[in-house]
Simulated assay, not measured.
Amino acid sequence: MAKMKAVTLFADWDPKPDFKLGPKDIEGKQTYLGSKVWRNPRIEIVEHDIPEPGPEEVLIEVKACGICGSDVHMAEPDKDGYILYPGLTGFPTILGHELSGVVVKAGERAFDKTTNKPFKGGELVCAEEMVWCGSCKPCADGYPNHCERLDEIGFNINGAFAKYIVLPAKLLWSLEPLRKRYKDEEIFLAGSLVEPTSVAYNAVIERGGGIRPGDNVVICGGGPIGLAACAILKRQGAANVILSEPQPERAELGLKMGADHVINPLEKDFAEEVLRLTDGMGANLYLEATGLPDKVYPGIEQAIWEGRTLNSTVVIVARADAKIPVTGEVLQVRRARIIGAQGHSGHGTFPRVIQAMASGMDMLPLITKKISLEEVPENIIELRTNRKDCKITCVMD
């Protein structure tokens, strides 16, 4: 069979003493509690067979794939050698899930949902990262992000830091609308940003409930998800989009993406600044996108308690194995709530993000560095400490 090079993550199955094999875990192969099991992660570029599509699958030539914080945390060990990422993982696997590309070959029952016709080849597409079954109860209830038979591209099945990837046709979305605004390589770069932007969209719109024009919002964390949320919420009509981010480069980028104000929480009191910038009102929606909820939440809670806005929503989108110090009295008296957000599929999230991008919501500034496939491993490692770059994207030859 023909071969291709791919960025592959290896790790050792070495469960912590408190780990118990769950009903969806597979001994020695995959778990839903990655940080409790996988040890000594290592990234290698190795050869894999070029895959062939099944009847309902599509072979895609990958054109662009972004490095996600999840890729970094899957490959990053803590002091005891365990990976930082807490979720579904199965190694070895090819990393990469923020992809766009061109259809090369399709199975006989692989249909393009945007045309309701079979894929023929040559179509420009992006893909959902969460592989949902469509037949379990969460899927039947309309919650594919919580599929009971969930697989995740680049987490427990092979991803897109490779020349080719085979995916179920049901996960693909056409990038044709982006031709209105982008040309050549830019279409694929924009297409690779649909997945992370959809994570932000799901968090603040679908799970957080969105806002009314004129509301105040606070985004904690100026990574790709937080910055995408700035763009989405400003486009939805937020009066004040306040970004909390200490890194100067990301703070500056936040202002370009839609933030009206930036707080450096290392230099100023977060809650005091939120209240000052909103004339004592506080915010209708707070997004926790730092991955440090134990450190960030107390400030959010103080702003809710001291502010005059009732019914605030706190959305937790960053993945972290950490407990949040919650004061129930604050939630009760201020009619506030905490919502969890996972993933991006369902409720038409992908096509809405694509249409928003096609009509002027430019996400390309998020990409601050472009690299080759061979440079992916070193950049994943560099992102453990590099907060100057936002989105580093692999562009395929």
Rank of each mutant, 00 (worst) to 15 (best):
residue 11 A to H: 01
residue 305 W to F: 14
residue 48 H to F: 13
residue 271 A to Y: 03
residue 315 V to D: 06
residue 356 A to S: 15
residue 303 A to T: 13
residue 318 A to E: 03
residue 83 I to K: 02
residue 347 H to I: 02
residue 136 C to Q: 08
residue 147 C to H: 02
residue 382 E to Q: 10
residue 112 D to V: 06
residue 383 L to M: 07
residue 308 R to M: 12
residue 302 Q to L: 03
residue 284 N to Q: 12
residue 93 T to S: 13
residue 233 L to F: 02
residue 120 K to C: 00
residue 290 T to N: 09
residue 314 V to M: 13
residue 212 R to S: 01
residue 388 K to S: 02
residue 196 P to I: 04
residue 324 I to N: 09
residue 19 F to Y: 10
residue 72 V to T: 11
residue 216 N to W: 06
residue 51 P to H: 12
residue 54 G to L: 13
residue 207 R to N: 12
residue 322 A to I: 05
residue 4 M to I: 02
residue 152 E to H: 07
residue 380 I to G: 02
residue 155 F to L: 14
residue 322 A to H: 15
residue 248 P to H: 00
residue 222 G to A: 04
residue 211 I to P: 00
residue 389 D to V: 01
residue 301 E to S: 10
residue 107 G to S: 10
residue 386 N to S: 00
residue 134 G to L: 00
residue 116 N to V: 08
residue 186 E to K: 09
residue 261 H to K: 12
residue 208 G to K: 05
residue 86 P to N: 10
residue 51 P to F: 06
residue 46 V to R: 15
residue 338 I to R: 08
residue 269 D to T: 03
residue 205 I to Q: 02
residue 296 V to L: 04
residue 315 V to F: 03
residue 6 A to M: 07
residue 47 E to H: 14
residue 165 I to Y: 07
residue 389 D to Q: 14
residue 89 T to E: 11
residue 182 Y to Q: 02
residue 264 N to A: 05
residue 212 R to D: 00
residue 313 T to D: 05
residue 302 Q to P: 01
residue 251 A to G: 07
residue 62 V to C: 15
residue 118 P to Q: 07
residue 378 E to W: 01
residue 146 H to I: 13
residue 30 Q to A: 08
residue 178 L to T: 10
residue 78 D to V: 14
residue 155 F to T: 02
residue 9 L to M: 08
residue 260 D to N: 14
residue 256 K to W: 03
residue 281 M to D: 06
residue 250 R to F: 10
residue 19 F to L: 06
residue 125 V to D: 01
residue 285 L to E: 03
residue 128 E to C: 07
residue 77 P to N: 15
residue 141 D to G: 02
residue 288 E to P: 04
residue 7 V to H: 08
